[in-house]
Design a protein around this nucleic acid. Structure first.
Length: 484
DNA sequence: AAAAAAT
C-alpha cells in the first residue's frame, strides 16, 4: 500500500565517521536522556541542565565539521550497500555510528555494552534511528544472517518499555520454540540492568493458571501460544501492546508459514501499535504482502546475498540413493566434526533414522525435531550450544535464526524443497546461514541422490548465481581440502 | 513437509 505521496529511494550515508543527521531533524525526536560513558566505559548520566548549552555547542561544531566532510567527499559513497525507503520521503536520512547517539536509557546502553557490542552493525546504524523516532514508525527490514537483526529489534522493544506499568507492552513472535528461547535470552541479557523488567515466554509447555493476567513487560513466543494467551485465555491484553515484532517475518506471514495466527494476533493490536518485521529473506510475493500488512512502513534492505555466500564454501556430493548419501556422509564425518555441524533432513522421520544410523556407526549425534517433547528439545539445543554435542541432526525447525558460533559446517542431507517439490531458495540461504556467523568462514555440503535432486540443486545454483562445486567423498585429498 | 495450540 503506497503512501499518498509515494516514496523516494535514498541512500544512508553510512561511511562517514560522524553520523549527525543530514539537514533538519525537527521531526525526529529521540529520547531525552543524555548519557555518555566515563573513562572506564561505564555509563553515567550527565547533569542535563548544567551541560545542555555546552552539548548544543558541541553538536553545532560537529555538524559543521560533518558538512565540511560531506562537501569534500562529494557525497559519493559507493561502498554502501544499504537501501533505505522512508515512509516520509521528506524526512532526513539518519544513521548513527555509535550507540550513544541514540540516547538510550542509561540502563539499556549499559546492557548493550555488557553484551560486547561496541558499535552498531550496518543494519543497526540505519534501523535504530527509524525505530526509535517519535512517534513510532513501522519498519520492514531485510538483512542477511548474522548481521545483528535480533539486537536491533530487542533494543527497540526495550527502549519503549515502561517498567512501572505491570502489563505486556512489547510482543515478539518467533517461528519456532528454540528461536523464541534464544531471542528471549538476548532480551534478558540486554535488559539485565533494569531490575524490574520481566519477560514472559509464550511457548508450548508454559502453562499458567487460568483467569490471571500476566504482569511481564515483554512477551516472546510462538504464534499458537501467543494467540491463545491473547484471545482464548486472555493472559495478555493485546490492546496495550505498543511494539509488535515479527522475527523471521517472511515465514511468519507467508501462506505456507504461520500466516493465519500471526495475522489474527496482529488484528487484535491497537491501530497505533508499532510493527517491526525482520528477516534475511523476503521472496517477491511475500515482500508485497508484507507491505500490505504493515501500514506506512519504512523499508531497509541490506541486500548483499553474494557477500554471505562468499564466506561460505558450497559443495555437492553426487549419490544414487539414500544409502549412498549415508556412506558419503560417513566418509566426510571426520572432517566435519573438527568444529560443530548441523545436518538437515526433509522430514522428522529421515532425521530420526539418520541419527539412529550414525549412532550405530559409533558416532555421537544429537537429534532435534518438532515431534520431540519441548523439555527434550530445550535440553538438546542447550547441549549443542555448550558444545557437548558436536553434530546435530535436524529438520527445518533449526533452519532459521539458530545462532551457535562454533557451527562451521552445514550438511543438506536432503535439499530444501517446498510442499510442491520446488527448490526452496529462502530455506537454503537460511540453512547455510547457520554457519559463517559474523563473517566467519563456513562450509555447506549438499547431498544429491537423484536426477531430480540434481535438478533442484542446479536451480538453487542458478538462483544465487553462485557455483556449487562437486566434491568426491571417496577422494581423501579432497576431503582434506574442505576441512581447511 | 515442518512448524505452529491448553483445542
Amino acid at each position: 500500500m503506497a503512501g499518498a505521496g509515494g516514496r523516494v529511494r535514498g541512500r544512508a550515508l553510512g561511511r562517514f565517521p560522524l553520523a549527525l543527521p543530514m539537514g533538519d531533524l525537527s521531526n525526529l525526536h529521540l529520547k531525552e536522556e543524555k548519557i555518555k560513558p566515563d573513562a572506564n566505559g561505564a555509563v553515567v548520566k550527565t547533569n542535563a541542565n548544567a551541560e545542555k548549552a555546552d552539548e548544543e555547542e558541541k553538536e553545532d561544531r560537529a555538524a559543521q565539521s560533518l558538512l565540511n566532510k560531506l562537501i569534500r567527499s562529494n557525497l559519493v559513497d559507493n561502498t554502501n550497500q544499504v537501501e533505505v525507503l522512508q515512509r516520509d520521503p521528506n524526512s532526513p536520512l539518519y544513521s548513527v555510528k555509535s550507540f550513544e547517539e541514540l540516547r538510550l536509557k542509561p540502563q539499556l546502553l549499559q546492557g548493550v555494552y555488557a553484551m560486547g557490542f561496541n558499535r552498531p552493525s550496518k543494519i543497526q546504524e540505519n534501523a535504530l534511528p527509524l525505530m526509535l523516532a517519535e512517534p513510532p514508525q513501522n519498519l520492514i527490514a531485510q538483512s542477511q544472517s548474522g548481521t545483528g537483526k535480533t539486537a536491533a529489534f530487542v533494543l527497540a522493544m526495550l527502549s519503549q518499555v515502561e517498567p512501572a506499568h505491570r502489563y505486556p507492552q512489547c510482543l515478539c513472535l518467533s517461528p519456532t520454540y528454540e528461536l523464541a528461547l534464544q531471542t528471549g535470552k538476548v532480551i534478558e541479557q540486554m535488559g539485565k540492568f533494569y531490575p524490574e523488567l520481566k519477560l514472559a515466554y509464550a511457548v508450548r509447555g508454559n502453562k499458567l493458571e487460568r483467569g490471571q493476567k500476566i504482569s511481564e513487560h515483554i512477551v516472546i513466543g510462538t504464534p499458537g501460544t501467543v494467540l491463545d494467551w491473547c484471545a482464548k485465555l486472555k493472559f495478555i491484553d493485546p490492546k496495550k501492546i505498543k511494539v509488535f515484532v515479527l522475527d523471521e517475518a517472511d515465514v511468519m506471514i507467508a501462506t505456507q508459514g504461520h500466516q493465519d495466527q500471526s495475522i489474527r494476533i496482529q488484528r487484535m493490536l491497537p491501530r497505533n501499535c508499532q510493527m517491526l518485521l525482520f528477516s534475511a529473506t523476503f521472496e517477491d510475493s511475500v515482500w508485497k504482502f508484507a507491505q500490505k500488512v504493515v501500514p506506512d512502513p519504512n523499508i531497509i534492505k541490506l541486500k548483499r546475498e553474494e557477500e554471505t555466500l562468499d564466506t561460505i564454501k558450497q559443495y555437492y556430493v553426487l549419490c544414487n540413493n539414500r544409502d549412498e548419501k549415508f556412506q558419503a556422509l560417513c566418509n566426510l564425518y571426520g572432517a566435519i566434526t573438527i568444529a560443530q555441524a548441523m545436518i538437515f533432513c526433509h522430514t522428522r522421520k529421515t532425521a530420526s533414522w539418520l541419527a539412529a544410523e550414525l549412532s550405530k556407526e559409533g558416532h555421537q549425534v544429537a537429534l532435534l525435531s518438532g515431534e520431540m517433547m519441548v523439555e527434550q528439545r530445550a535440553a538438546v539445543i542447550e547441549r549443542f550450544r555448550e558444545g557437548k554435542e558436536k553434530v546435530l541432526v535436524t529438520t527445518n525447525v533449526c533452519a532459521r535464526g539458530i545462532d551457535v558460533e562454533q557451527v562451521s559446517v552445514v550438511i543438506n542431507f536432503d535439499l530444501p524443497v517446498d510442499k510442491d517439490g520446488n527448490p526452496d531458495n529462502e530455506t537454503y540461504l537460511h540453512r547455510i546461514g547457520r554457519t559463517g556467523r559474523f563473517g566467519k568462514r563456513g562450509l555447506a555440503v549438499n547431498m544429491v541422490d537423484s536426477k531430480h535432486s540434481m535438478n533442484i540443486l542446479n536451480r538453487i545454483q542458478e538462483h544465487f548465481n553462485k557455483k556449487i562445486e562437486r566434491l568426491d567423498t571417496d577422494d581423501l585429498d579432497e576431503i582434506e581440502k574442505i576441512a581447511n
